[in-house]
C-alpha cells in the first residue's frame, strides 16, 4: 500500500467513525446519511463500469494516429471545437470526464485540448443546459457560455504550455 492509499484510508476511517457517532447521538441523521450514501454509491457503481468498458473499447479499436491527427500537436484550432462538442455530449459528472481525458491523453491528444475537454464537460453538458434554460432563462445560459468557454480555452492553453515545459504527464495509476 502506498502513501496516497494510506492517507485515503485514514480519511475514510475518520468519516465512517463520524457517521457511527452521528448514529449514536442522532439515529435520524445517521439513517438519512446511510440512505443517501447507498443511493449515491449505487448510482456511481451502475454508471462507472459501463464508462470504463466504453473507454477501453475505444482504446483497443481506435488508432492512436487518428486521435493524434485531430487532437494532437498538429490538430490546430479545430481540436478545440471537437473537444467542446465531446465535452457537451459527455454524460454524467466530472468523474466520468476524467477517465475519458486520461484516455485521450494516451491516444496522443495535447494537454491544452484535454483541459479544454474537462472544462467543456463541466460547463456545457447538453442535458444540464436544457435544465438551466428552462429554470433560469436562455439569457442566463448565453452569458455563462460566452464568458466561461473562452476563459476555459485560454486557461487550458496556458496550463498546457506551462505543464508541457515541466514534463508533466496525466496518469491513471
Amino acid at each position: 500500500m502506498n502513501k496516497k492509499n494510506i492517507i485515503m484510508t485514514i480519511l475514510l476511517s475518520i468519516m465512517i467513525l463520524l457517521i457511527i457517532v452521528l448514529y449514536v447521538f442522532s439515529p435520524e441523521t445517521g439513517e438519512k446519511i446511510g440512505n443517501a450514501f447507498s443511493t449515491n454509491i449505487l448510482t456511481m457503481l451502475k454508471i462507472l463500469p459501463l464508462v470504463f468498458i466504453l473507454i477501453a473499447l475505444f482504446e483497443v479499436w481506435v488508432k492512436k494516429e487518428k486521435v493524434e491527427k485531430h487532437l494532437g500537436e498538429k490538430g490546430g484550432l479545430r481540436s478545440f471545437l471537437w473537444v467542446v462538442i465531446l465535452g457537451g455530449t459527455t454524460i454524467g459528472p466530472m468523474i466520468v470526464a476524467l477517465p475519458v481525458a486520461a484516455s485521450l491523453y494516451r491516444k496522443g491528444a495535447r494537454l491544452s485540448v484535454i483541459f479544454t475537454y474537462l472544462g467543456a464537460a463541466a460547463v456545457c453538458r447538453i442535458p444540464m443546459t436544457i435544465f438551466e434554460t428552462s429554470y433560469l432563462g436562455v439569457k442566463f445560459t448565453i452569458i455563462r457560455y460566452s464568458v466561461a468557454l473562452p476563459l476555459i480555452i485560454v486557461s487550458s492553453v496556458i496550463m498546457g504550455r506551462i505543464l508541457n515545459r515541466s514534463g508533466y504527464k496525466i496518469q491513471e495509476e
Binding site: M8, L11, L12, M15, I16, L18, I19, I33, A36, F37, N40, I41, M44, L48, I95
Partner: peptide, 10 residues
Amino acid sequence: LLLMVLSMTI
C-alpha cells in the same frame, strides 16, 4: 470514489 461519495453525502 468511496471517499468522494462519502464526503459528498456527509
